[in-house]
Design a protein around this nucleic acid. Sequence first.
DNA 1: CAATTTTCATTTGTCAGACAATTAAAAGTC
DNA 2: GACTTTTAATTGTCTGACAAATGAAAATTG
Lengths: 243, 243
Amino acid sequence: MKIDPTSSKDLSAQIASAIRDAIVSGAMPVDERLPSEAELADQFEVSRSTVREALKRLAAQSLIRTQRGATGGAFVNRLRYADAYSQQITTSTLLLSMNAVSFETACEARYALERACAPLSATRRTPDHLATMRAEIHRQGQPGLTDEAFCASDVAFHRALVDGAGNPVLSYQLAGAVEAMQPLMNMITFTARSRERIITLHGGIADAIEAQDGGAADAALVELAEYTVALAQSVFEARAAQR
Amino acid sequence: MKIDPTSSKDLSAQIASAIRDAIVSGAMPVDERLPSEAELADQFEVSRSTVREALKRLAAQSLIRTQRGATGGAFVNRLRYADAYSQQITTSTLLLSMNAVSFETACEARYALERACAPLSATRRTPDHLATMRAEIHRQGQPGLTDEAFCASDVAFHRALVDGAGNPVLSYQLAGAVEAMQPLMNMITFTARSRERIITLHGGIADAIEAQDGGAADAALVELAEYTVALAQSVFEARAAQR
DNA sequence: CAATTTTCATTTGTCAGACAATTAAAAGTC
DNA sequence: GACTTTTAATTGTCTGACAAATGAAAATTG
């Protein structure tokens, strides 16, 4: 293997790209062991430090895992849903916070995606999913709950709704959208009355899902979406008037 | 700053986590310069190599960028949609290929998400989006097109449909689902007749979007989804029978 | 012989120091 | 003032070393 030394990119970035391509293309199957750092250094004609920096880049993307010891080394990692989730959430959160995405835009995306899950969830939800949804609704009604805790419970409720669809790919895609909304939701101070309204709407969604009525679930989600946007608007307006 | 030396994780991973948390929490705003590698090494009481490995991890996630020279250093990077797209596509592609996600599951997720975009796209699509969709439909009808080129055009068509919704968050979320499907779609050999059918269905979608008829677009997408699943099933069955 | 312990080789993790490459600011020159 | 040269700061790369982990082989012991 060789690397272009005249490229503008770092050597470690080039090496990481080369190995990444090999993994993504399927040339290196899961659990295959990469050559040792010393061997890679020889092959690419760079120092071991440079190889290590490249490997750390790949490790950050969960593409490889490393193990010390005699039979250790770097191995192609099976990307698990949990790893993919957390990466997606980090990326989505930053994307929203760094690009001044409006509450409306984020909210629209979130509810559009959730509505895509609702009919599937109505058909396939297990008793477990229903129990989680009911439990979160109950928690949301507890007095003395902080806004942050209320929002966290809200996220948990919606995750259960999404997971109910029984499609891991959907769950993975939605995780980012739902979780990344939390910081934006945390900006809203919930009055007792708005909480009550949201809890009622959540109850309606849970009822529809329990009754396996996809249409009703969709309608309830639309109602919740509209209420959320209206609530946010009033909160932001009140805040602007205060100044 | 201090780091737990008894932790099971690598020092570089711990340092990367600490800095990542600072960035994600918003404690370090975009374009803020991190301390130099030497200063970080002092603060965390580790060597410069270890700091560098931590920084490479963050660079791999596009959280920072580095610049050489007197006023250089590592800066908090504004995560752009393009960076987020490509990361999402890499992750989604690996997730599908490494976890033996069935064609049905991936297809269901993709079309469920696209259906979420369709009504928005019908309302907001620009002439540009329509032109792209028409151009890709035309390309798909060209004789002598390889299966790969046909699939690539298919992806481009669906991206235009999604982008038509005018919601960058949706586009970002959908990019992974749509693009990651391509390797799976490439497994299907398209006959002239199946291509013709798909092109007809694409035309129907484009017509509905042009007419700003969300309901018709949704119906056309459902039809396309069903046809795609049926086509895949027949292809896989034929392949199984061949053995 | 079987079970256990010890030794050993391999590999990653960390460190220290050096030099090259790059870059912008500072100093010098006309 | 405009231009050139110098300088200092910073990242990129290399070298060599040692520590820590770990499984396999060898030695030991009953």
